[in-house]
Design a protein around this nucleic acid. Structure first.
Length: 464
RNA sequence: GCAGCCGUAGCUUAGCUGGCUCAAAGCGCUGCCCUGUCACGGCAGAGAACGUGGGUUCGAAUCCCAUCGGCUGCGCCA
């Protein structure tokens, strides 16, 4: 007999079925034994009576979380014995065949609860067990649904999904890079991408016009509840689009995600309010204001913060820096003006905000080489450095670059908000600690001397 | 890098103004009893270097120092 999902057993009522899964719980009454079996789709009550001696003796040995398969009749339960709490509560399996596929030791913690009552340290160490928990399983499935929806939506809009390299080049601006030593070029290093920013802009030069990617990004900064060293964002870029077109697309996408996947949530304002940066700072003293009135969990207050300043003064470094990044297009292409009054220059830059969290940011990009160079100059880069670090961009822009822009909404934070989770670790299958460790894998870890030798690396100071 | 909180059976916690509770409880686990439960029930039992190292003291889970680990926030996060 072919194994079916537990959720399908309802359709087999009156007939026979075979299911496989984990033992969710056992209730033994001396003679009659109830075993709840669990698979990805749900839980089913199995009944074992002493009349079938072989099965009964086998069932007595079974313990929670063992992996078993069972076949038998799917019967309607007697009327007063239905369980409205589970999907298959109207039926049960009368077991006629029972096999143990794999035994299990007692789990290090209970997976019946939501998990709030168990320390995160131990949950992360045994994350594969933690993921058996209903709450985590739901989070993974909902996350996948959202990503699937995004894919289908954008592809319908004419976007092309393209993978960009994970091994790439360190960029001097922005967050600290994770670096990867090169074996074939000893002394040189790759960097993991903080975002596919430059690649996606170069794809615009390639004529892709509408690109997207569910992109993993890496930043070697200290994590927070809403920040991980590696995270996922919906990275997208469009040619010939203005700010309005990009924001409308995102607005439309997110309205439909909510409608389709989270119908119980209420979007407070449609269209999403557009608030200028200066207005937001004046009115809310924040560039990611929480616009909900009642702070209700089912309320969603989306907003776009627009018209960010192009530059900010960095006191410690005594120089101007890009608020967003140097590729952002200033609202003027008057080179003299940019160089003379950096503080007065606004940018085509926008943040995407939800319930007081920044869930994305984007901009139109500078596509005129002279504007890009002026921006770098304001930021204190020497011509020579500009060409060393960004020469490929400037060169590319010489060969016919369309005006372009994009946005990159984060997936993790968005999911945490929608699923009412207190931090993004709960929506990431294998997340890292506040110290960027992976407690389950034991990463990061030392490498052996042979590996170091190949890379021509020497560790001068070892942590004890 | 800085600050705060936390670390006692498998899990969650009590004890922590030092000795008579250097260990207790609930859940889980093991065994026995129980034919309809679904947080099954009943009885019995096993299970703890009190994160680690050092110090103070006649005596430390309890006080001090260091260290390791977890969480939160600041710095940082183009």
């Amino acid at each position: 007999m072919k194994r079916i999902y537990i959720s399908q057993t309802l359709k087999s009522t009156g007939g026979s079925a075979k299911v496989s899964g984990w033992v969710n719980s056992i209730r033994s009454h001396g003679k009659i034994i109830f075993i709840d079996i669990r698979d990805i789709t749900g839980v089913l009550q199995m009944v074992i009576s002493p009349s079938n001696k072989d099965i009964y003796e086998k069932a007595k040995q079974i313990r929670p979380e063992w992996v078993i398969e069972a076949a038998g009749k799917i019967n309607e339960r007697p009327k007063n014995m239905e369980n409205p709490d589970i999907e298959t509560g109207k039926v049960e399996m009368s077991v006629e065949e029972l096999n143990v596929l794999s035994k299990a030791e007692t789990l290090p913690f209970s997976i019946e609860s939501e998990g709030y009552d168990i320390s995160e340290e131990i949950r992360m160490k045994y994350r594969y067990l933690d993921l058996r928990r209903e709450r985590l399983r739901r989070n993974m499935i909902m996350r996948q649904k959202v990503i699937q929806f995004i894919r289908e939506f954008l592809i319908k809009e004419g976007f092309i999904e393209i993978e960009t390299p994970i091994l790439t080049k360190s960029t001097p601006e922005g967050a600290r890079d994770f670096i990867v030593p090169s074996r074939l070029q000893p002394g040189s290093f790759y960097a993991l991408p903080q975002s596919p920013q430059q690649y996606k802009q170069l794809l615009m030069v390639s004529g892709i016009e509408k690109y997207f990617q569910i992109a993993r990004c890496f930043r070697d900064e200290d994590p927070r509840g809403d920040r991980q060293p590696e995270f996922t964002q919906l990275d997208l870029e469009m040619s010939f689009a203005d700010e309005e077109e990009i924001l409308k697309l995102v607005e439309n996408l997110y309205i439909n995600i909510i409608k389709d996947i989270f119908p119980q949530k209420k979007i407070l304002q449609i269209p999403f309010p557009r608030i200028s940066y200066s207005e937001a700072m004046k009115e809310y003293n924040s560039d990611k204001p929480d616009l909900r009135k009642n702070k209700n969990k089912d309320e969603l207050a989306f907003a776009f913060i627009v018209d960010f300043p192009m530059f900010e003064w960095k006191k410690e470094e005594n120089r101007w820096d890009a608020v967003h990044h140097p590729f952002t297009r200033p609202k003027t292409d008057n080179i003299d003006e940019i160089k003379k009054n950096p503080d007065k220059i606004l940018a085509y830059q926008y943040d995407f905000v939800l319930n007081g969290f920044e869930i994305g940011g984007g901009s139109l990009r500078s596509y005129k080489p002279e504007v890009l160079e002026a921006v770098f100059e304001v930021m204190g880069h020497k011509k020579k450095d500009i060409h060393q670090k960004f020469g490929h961009m400037l060169t590319a822009f010489k060969y016919g670059v369309p005006p372009h822009g994009g946005i990159a909404p984060g997936i993790d934070r968005f999911m945490a908000i929608l699923l009412n989770e207190p931090n993004i670790r709960e929506v990431i299958a294998f997340s890292k600690t506040g110290d960027s460790r992976d407690l389950m894998m034991g990463a990061p870890d030392i490498v052996n001397d042979e590996q170091l030798k190949e890379l021509k690396l020497k560790i001068t100071k070892k942590k004890k």
